[in-house]
Amino acid sequence: MTKTRITYYPVQFIVLHPLIPVTINTVLPSHIVKITDIKVVHSVGVQNMTTDKYLPVIGHLSLEFNSKQYHFGNIEVPFDYQTEASDEFLDAGIDIQRNSLLTGNYENKVFTGIDYLKADGTVTDKWSNYIVTIYLKTMSND
């Protein structure tokens, strides 16, 4: 019998447009049996649009586990560009069905003004694509 141990599984997604929501649809690897904690962080990109080092919310993320059977809820994604940024994870405790889908939606909430968006809907050069990472702290039996 294999021993269950902790691993960290990141799911990264890119945001290319301030108004278009991002759909998340991915299958978790089959060795993940449980998700104990979740953390969602901004990775790179937003720092190109602002001189601030901290924005409390840049977007909202809704996450569903086990092929939409379980809606975890909505998570605010902050932009925190400081070394003192919190390391805390959100409690989850979700038993994962084998080969189930992780689905969700992300809605950007910042930099949606006319400085960033032209009248025809395309982005200006002030907009920068950015990457958000969902860290899943998991129990794995690989």
């Binding site: 278009i20 929501p21 909202h60 809704s62 569903e64 809606h71 809820g73 939606n105 809605e107």
Partner: peptide
């Protein structure tokens, strides 16, 4: 259309 579980933009 937005909701707790979904957000869509009709494109």
């Amino acid at each position: 259309i937005t909701s707790d579980t979904n957000v869509m933009l009709l494109e």
